[in-house]
């Protein structure tokens, strides 16, 4: 019974994993890589310190 519950959960839980990864990638892309002026200036120091390509 317990095994069946774990299996059922394993099959249905790939979606939240993919969704979370996409959120993470989107946050990194917007805060670290988008070149729009205001965003670039605000995040400038962090982008350099975090080793992202900047300018």
């Amino acid at each position: 019974m317990a095994t069946r519950t774990v299996q059922a959960e394993a099959q249905s839980s790939l979606l939240p994993i993919i969704f979370s990864a996409i959120i993470g990638i989107a946050v990194i892309f917007v805060s670290g890589h988008v070149q729009a002026g205001a965003l670039h200036d605000a995040a400038h120091d962090v982008r350099h310190a975090t080793g992202f390509p900047c300018h």
Binding site: A21, G24, V27, I28, A43, V46
Partner: peptide, 16 residues
């Protein structure tokens, strides 16, 4: 922005 970036990393890390 540092908190934001590390939160983004955290989402990917915890998903993995």
């Amino acid at each position: 922005f540092t908190i934001l970036i590390y939160s983004g990393y955290a989402f990917i890390l915890v998903a993995l």
